[in-house]
Design a binder for these strands. Structure first.
Length: 343
DNA sequence: AATCCGGGGCG
DNA sequence: CGCCCAGGATT
């Protein structure tokens, strides 16, 4: 072999996307972030020393795309009800979805229970420590695996969430915001920035720094202890050219699906779903708003039905979304009746 | 790489 | 009312 492979030997573009960071600069950033974190970190309950690895895992799942302020009360109630993986694995799925409340993305709750079943059945009820093992669990991807390995077990890992990606990209690459999802190149780049000592504080610190100082919307650059060496700040904080278009909500299937889920949860809470909510009663109630049929349900369930009715009177569409809920495992259909799953 | 998947709250 | 929030799975 007298020659190297050709195609990949043009480093001109990638080196500017994720540039090498000079050693003194990196040390300054690491020391600053870690010191800042140890002084300014929020007192989150799952950061307390006696928190179990499972409790930390639960907090990470709940925090996916959901603000900490909304997670905290749900997490407390959840851990009080199901302290270990075996507890959650044994719980009725309808109760799990009800306890998930309105945290959003309810399939996260299903996958969390799936993960609990694997841990309880195959892993002696113990949360695995390595990112490789964690990533095999349902609902756990690269971020959550690294976070649990780092925060619950103190292992060195590369925690790369939206906060970390934004902070690193601003500091070292001069861009306002990261891409939609991290690629292999970015992950490797970020891994090289993790220090060998106090890597847990680094991981948690960069995340916290992105959440409190280097925020997406109104970063507090005047208060930033790194403003003098921040590439993005030096460039005058240029806005990224292409901002990802935000997903619609009003009028979408997602909104209507959520309202239908509310009916199931209300029916479950009121005991209306002992034999499931009849599909006929449900769809007729929704489309015709028939008082007779509504009266056969509890007041809270009827109110949830009325809310669906406000969003849509399209019977076919409602029918299709209910079918989707069954397919996704978020609802269960038995003899023409619809209910929350009872696995 | 782009989409979809909930829901709420803030500027 | 647009945008963002400790992402993951699928295509």
């Amino acid at each position: 072999m007298t020659h190297r492979a050709g195609p990949e030997s043009n480093p001109s573009e990638s080196s500017t996307t994720f540039p090498q960071v000079a050693e003194p600069v990196l040390r300054r950033v690491q020391d600053t972030i870690i010191a800042w974190f140890e002084e300014a970190a929020r007192d989150l309950p799952w950061r307390h020393p006696d928190t179990s690895a499972w409790a930390i895992l639960v907090s990470e799942i709940m925090s996916q795309q959901t603000p900490v302020s909304r997670v905290e009360p749900r997490w407390r109630a959840w851990m009080d009800q199901w302290p270990t993986p075996a507890d959650l694995a044994a719980a009725p799925t309808a109760e799990v979805l009800h306890a998930w409340d309105r945290l959003g993305y309810p399939r996260r709750a299903l996958r969390l229970q799936d993960a609990a079943e694997v841990i309880a059945a195959d892993l002696d009820n113990q949360v695995p420590e390595t990112t490789e093992e964690l990533e095999r669990l349902p609902g756990i991807g690269s971020y959550t695996a690294a976070a649990v390995s780092s925060f619950a077990f103190g292992r060195k890992a590369t925690v790369l969430d939206t906060n970390v990606r934004r902070v690193l990209v601003r500091l070292f690459a001069g861009r306002e915001r990261p891409t939609t999802s991290p690629g292999r190149e970015e992950t490797a780049w970020a891994a090289n920035l993790v220090p060998d000592v106090k890597h847990v504080e680094w991981n948690a610190g960069v995340m916290e720094f992105g959440a409190l100082v280097c925020t997406a919307r109104n970063p507090d650059c005047p208060a930033c202890p790194l403003h003098d060496i921040c590439t993005w700040n030096q460039l005058g904080r240029p806005a990224s050219a292409t901002k990802p278009k935000t997903q619609k909500w009003a009028g979408t299937d997602r909104q209507l699906r959520g309202a239908i889920m509310d009916v199931l949860k209300a029916a479950h809470a009121a005991g209306d779903d002992r034999h499931g909510v009849s599909l006929d009663v449900f769809t007729t109630s929704v489309t015709e708003l028939d008082p007779t049929l509504i009266d056969s349900l509890s007041e809270s369930t009827a109110a949830a039905v009325a809310r669906v009715r406000e969003l849509s009177a399209d019977r076919d569409r409602i029918s299709r979304l209910m079918t989707d809920l069954v397919t996704d495992g978020l609802a269960q259909k038995i003899d023409g009746r619809l209910a929350l799953p009872n696995r």
